[in-house]
């Protein structure tokens, strides 16, 4: 398969001159193979601090695989991942806040137990912020997860993840499978939780919903990177929206 690269794509840059010179995230020749399936193929990327990056691609393009490897719950077949210049491991997990696409709580746990758990293990967890966000959501902290609806559990999980003052947030399909009203709440929570200097990588195929909040985007197809560029590249150079560009690129 030949991938046509645009003649010139401006590289995503740090948000300001004050941002650290070293990239926040570096993937070098990253490959992940499951049996005969190549989920990610020789993937290279450098993401500076202070960006909101959309990880875009159709189902099976390698988005989740990439996020899981950065989070440290999956292991590359070859290649390297560095977060703040450190290989993925115990140290990087202290700076990475990961939202997987499915709930990971024990159903017997109460919401307040989850808050205590995060406060115990993550020094960057903002308990006051979590209390506030849960109150806005109307979640009773004495409730067991089993008593909450699937959508509420997902929102609680997002609140916990975004209440950390992490350097890198990895959000895997945070708006997939929820109603439009919930989508708005989730995006608002992400924006509210975002702190300048930290980076969010957000995977989705619902491009229209996230387009406005993105600084950069990464297009993935069949485990290969098609493009990594600022959203402005599409809107200004191509004269179209990111959603339209995405639909054109992945037309079946």
């Amino acid at each position: 398969m030949t991938i046509e690269q645009p003649p010139y794509v401006p590289a995503p840059t740090a948000v300001s001159a004050a941002a650290p010179a070293a990239p926040l995230l570096t993937c070098h020749n990253l490959t992940k193979v499951y049996g005969a399936t190549v989920a990610l193929d020789n993937f290279n990327i450098t993401v500076p601090a202070g960006r909101i990056v959309g990880l875009l691609g159709p189902n099976g393009s390698g988005k989740t695989t990439l996020l899981k490897m950065i989070a440290g719950v999956s292991h590359p077949t070859s290649g390297a991942i560095l977060v703040n210049g450190i290989a993925v491991g115990e140290q990087t997990k202290a700076h990475v806040s990961f939202l997987p696409e499915r709930p990971y709580f024990s159903r017997s746990m109460r919401v307040r137990d989850l808050l205590a758990f995060f406060a115990d293990f993550y020094s960057d967890f903002d308990l006051a912020m979590a209390h506030d966000m849960l109150a806005r959501l109307g979640v009773n902290e004495a409730s067991a997860c089993s008593a909450l609806s699937k959508g509420t559990v997902e929102k609680v999980q997002l609140v916990l993840v975004m209440s950390r003052h992490a350097a890198l947030y990895l959000l895997d399909e945070p708006i997939g499978g929820v109603d439009p009203a919930a989508r708005d709440y989730i995006l608002q929570t992400i924006i509210r939780g975002y702190r300048p200097g930290s980076t969010i990588i957000l995977s989705t195929h619902l491009v229209r919903d996230v387009e406005e909040v993105l600084d950069d985007f990464i297009l993935l197809r069949y485990g290969q990177m098609l493009l990594h560029a600022p959203v402005a590249y599409v809107t200004q150079e191509k004269g179209t929206t990111l959603d339209a560009y995405f639909r054109e690129e992945f037309r079946c």
Binding site: G72, V73, Q91, P100, Y104, F105, S106, F121
Partner: peptide
């Protein structure tokens, strides 16, 4: 098994502690 290798593993294995 449940806390390490099922969905709950996402919580356990992303903790900033050594394996």
């Amino acid at each position: 098994y449940r806390t390490m290798f099922t969905d709950e593993g996402y919580l356990t294995l992303t903790l900033p502690v050594s394996t």
